[in-house]
């Protein structure tokens, strides 16, 4: 069962083909990794899926629905959440508030009710908080709950960003280089957490990653890109031995 399917996606910036004619599909429940040298178009692909960029040609289907024309803010409602390569957190807010913002799509109250803080709003806030606490427990962020993001170390921020994405209760989670900037120990933790998210919450994950160790431990399938083109899709072992992939990384 495919959850996400991209057909002949292309995007070019002023003559440079960032992504060129890429087609792939991701199955429900998979951990799907995208690897490739710098500038291969991995992040661009993410930006296409989360509708930050418009594709020049091609289409993306999510859950049997064409999302190529859906406005950016509607993507979250459909059930796609993402993290960013260099973290894009709400810097001046606490971890708790960051995660509560992640609950925005589940809002059922209107402005007037919120102005007056009617009981329905209070109920909703308590519900949000409970869900946030579940995520905090899952990712072990209890100590940082009331800390402001700007004062947190990088590794924690990365986890907070994953937590914030999880607060959307997404069906598909996009992780953009989750291990970059983490030390080996934190990367180790990360691989367990990715497994937890995948297995306990049943979330499908697409991950852009450079750390081959992490990729082979967690991924069901791997897709290799180079210069915006798809080179190979397959199991982690297959990809690591694929001659085209080796060529892209090591040269001739």
């Amino acid at each position: 069962m495919s959850l996400l399917a991209a057909n002949n996606l292309s995007l070019s910036f002023g003559g440079v083909h960032a992504v060129e004619d890429v087609s792939f599909s991701v199955n429900k429940g998979e951990v799907f990794s995208i690897i490739g040298p710098n500038g291969a178009g991995k992040t661009t692909l993410f930006n296409l899926i989360s509708r930050i960029y418009d594709a020049s040609t091609g289409s993306i289907r999510f859950n049997e629905q064409d999302i190529s024309q859906v406005p950016t803010h509607r993507i979250a409602e459909l059930g796609i959440a993402r993290t960013f390569q260099n973290t894009e957190l709400f810097e001046q807010e606490t971890v708790l508030r960051n995660l509560l913002i992640g609950q925005h799509v589940h809002r059922r109250t209107n402005l007037l009710q919120e102005f007056l803080f009617l009981p329905s709003v209070r109920q909703q806030e308590l519900r949000f908080r409970k869900d946030v606490e579940d995520v905090i427990d899952l990712l072990d962020l209890q100590h940082y709950r009331h800390q402001v993001i700007a004062n947190l170390p990088y590794g924690v921020r990365k986890m907070v960003e994953v937590a914030r994405a999880l607060c959307l209760k997404p069906r598909l989670l996009l992780l953009d280089e989750p291990s970059s900037g983490l030390n080996p120990e934190e990367t180790e933790d990360l691989s367990f957490q990715i497994e937890d998210i995948n297995e306990e919450l049943g979330t499908t994950i697409i991950m852009v990653e450079h750390d081959m160790n992490l990729v082979s431990r967690t991924s069901t399938r791997v897709m290799a890109l180079a210069d915006g083109k798809l080179i190979a899709v397959g199991s982690p072992v297959e990809i690591q031995q694929h001659p085209e992939v080796l060529k892209a990384y090591l040269g001739e």
Partner: peptide, 27 residues
């Protein structure tokens, strides 16, 4: 009241990062 509910949080989200506010489903 506004600041302790969704709308207020959406406003601060926009202040700190528009791009990720959008990805969180904020219009």
């Amino acid at each position: 009241n506004l600041l302790r509910t969704s709308t207020g949080r959406a406003m601060t989200a926009i202040r700190d990062s528009e791009i990720s506010a959008q990805s969180m489903g904020i219009h």
